[in-house]
């Protein structure tokens, strides 16, 4: 593995290796001294073209716990708004000797472009590109599900589990990454969204179950896990381009409240990539219930990012590209 750009090209072997490594990293985080010397002397750059404090501090914590030197590079704006171009930024980072670049960008494909353009030679880790991919989010979700739902998880996937993804699948890189990874790991994927928030062609896919209300999905499946996506309020209504008529209608049809939560099997867990809109896509009762693993997702995020950086930089090659 030279880069981690998305989950769609990740083999089951590589994905399982990352999850197993994550388990090892997570175990080290329960020790009194959590810092490992593994990446001492290596430089990791967090290159953020888009604000995301949560993701940035997660990567920063991961790199620091592996003893890497961390440089945070916030390049707000874009070449469109006459800021520095991605190319010039990459040339700068190359000149500074970055061993790995963690990139968050508003443009889909920016991480791929950085990895393939020849502008720089270090490893590229995609921390979210436009509406395309966010692979470490999918990996931390998979890790969290495996830990809760698979007995003796080491070396295993998510075979036979049924996972629902609910909400704005159209604009969500989290959904894009999760669907591909869940399929690779053997899970059944259920997608729940209004037709306006489904990407082209998804309803026709035979390897995914699509439902247009959450109640339909709960009727049709015994879910092992449900993942509620964040609703971007500003994007959703008004101006003639609303994807649904009102937040209230969205909550009625797609919100996870106590009644719907109670219809899921007892072992089923609730995930959310954060930040949550309490009362919109998820009620406080659901978010704070014992089934919710939302806070654990955050700590698993650090472990997944440690594992990813370790596998990309430690020289211990993953089995295949």
């Amino acid at each position: 593995m030279k880069h981690l750009l998305g989950t769609q090209d990740l083999s089951r072997e590589d994905a399982t290796l990352i999850l197993d490594t994550t388990a090892q990293m997570a175990a080290t985080q329960e020790r009194e001294i959590r810092k490992l010397p593994t990446l001492r002397g290596r430089t990791v750059v967090n290159l953020f073209f888009e604000d995301s404090t949560r993701t940035r501090i997660s990567f920063e914590a991961a790199a620091k716990r592996l003893s890497a030197d961390v440089i945070n590079f916030s390049a707000k704006g874009s070449s469109l708004s006459k800021g520095e171009s991605l190319k010039d930024t990459a040339l700068t980072l190359q000149a500074m000797g970055a061993d790995a670049v963690v990139i968050r960008h508003w443009a889909s494909g920016a991480a791929d472009r950085l990895a393939q353009s020849g502008w720089m030679h270090g490893a590229v880790l995609n921390a979210g590109d436009g509406t395309h991919q966010h692979p470490t989010q999918a990996l931390l979700d998979a890790f969290t599900m495996r830990r809760h739902l698979v007995a003796d998880p080491d070396g295993k996937g998510l075979d036979g589990l049924t996972v629902a993804i609910v909400g704005d699948v159209l604009h969500s890189r989290v959904a894009g990454s999760n669907i591909a990874l869940l399929k690779t790991l053997g899970a059944n994927v259920v997608v729940v969204a209004p037709p306006t928030l489904l990407p082209f062609g998804m309803a026709a896919r035979e390897d995914i179950s699509v439902h247009y209300t959450l109640d339909d999905a709960l009727d049709a499946h015994d879910l092992d896990a449900i993942m509620m996506l964040r609703v971007q309020r500003e994007r959703m209504t008004g101006g003639g381009s609303g994807f649904f008529p009102s937040p209230e209608e969205y909550t009625r049809l797609f919100g996870l409240d106590r009644a719907r939560m109670d219809r899921m099997p007892e072992h089923a867990i609730i995930l959310h990539p954060g930040p949550m809109n309490r009362g919109l896509e998820i009620s406080a009762e659901a978010a704070d219930s014992p089934r919710s693993v939302i806070v654990e997702q955050v700590s698993n995020g650090v472990a997944v990012r440690m594992a990813s950086l370790y596998l990309l930089l430690s020289g211990e090659e993953a089995p295949s590209e």
Binding site: T131, H132, F200
Partner: peptide, 20 residues
């Protein structure tokens, strides 16, 4: 509005806004 490529299966995979 905001379209980046043909709207189809490839735009879905690439996460680029579609031009239907």
């Amino acid at each position: 509005e905001g379209s980046q490529m043909h709207e189809g299966l490839v735009s879905t995979e690439l996460g680029l806004a579609g031009w239907p």
